[in-house]
Amino acid sequence: MTHHSDTAERHAVKQVFRDMFFAALIYLPTVLGGALAIKWFDPPQWVAALLAIAPIGPALLILRAQLRYTRSLDELHRRIHSEAMMIAAIVVAFATLGYGLLEDLADFPHISLIWVFPALCVAWSIANLFVRQKYL
C-alpha cells in the first residue's frame, strides 16, 4: 500500500498552488503599478495602453499553471474539469447577456469586462462541485 497516486495528486495540487501564488505575486503589482502610473504620470496614450495590457502576461502564467495542473490529472478528473468549464462558460455567457441588457435597458450600474474572467473562474469552481457529485 504505497498510495502513490494520492501522493502524486497532492504533489500536483501543491505545484498548482505554488505556480498560482507566483503568478499572482507578479500580477498584482503589475495591475496596481500600471493603474497608479497612469493616474499619477498621465503618460501618452500608447504607454498607457501598454501598461494596461501588461497584466495579461501574468494572467497567461495563471493559465499555464492551470493547464499544467489539468495535464497532471487522470482522465476522469480531466473530464470533470472540462464539463465544469463548459457549464461555467454557458452560465457566464447567459448571465452577461442578461446583465448587459439590464445595464442597457434598465439603467443598472456598468460592470467592467474585467469581471468576466473572475466570473468564469468562480462559476467553474462551483460547477466543479456539482460535476464531481456525478462521478465520485
Binding site: 500500500m1 504505497t2 498510495h3 502513490h4 497516486s5 487522470d74 476522469l76 462521478y135
Partner: peptide, 28 residues
Amino acid sequence: WSQADLADKLDVSRQSVNAIETGKYDPS
C-alpha cells in the same frame, strides 16, 4: 488489491477506480 493498489498500477487516482467500479464512469 485495494482500490489504491489498482489506482497505483494504472497511474490514476483512487477516486477514478471507484467511479469505474460503480459504473459511474466508463474508462477510455
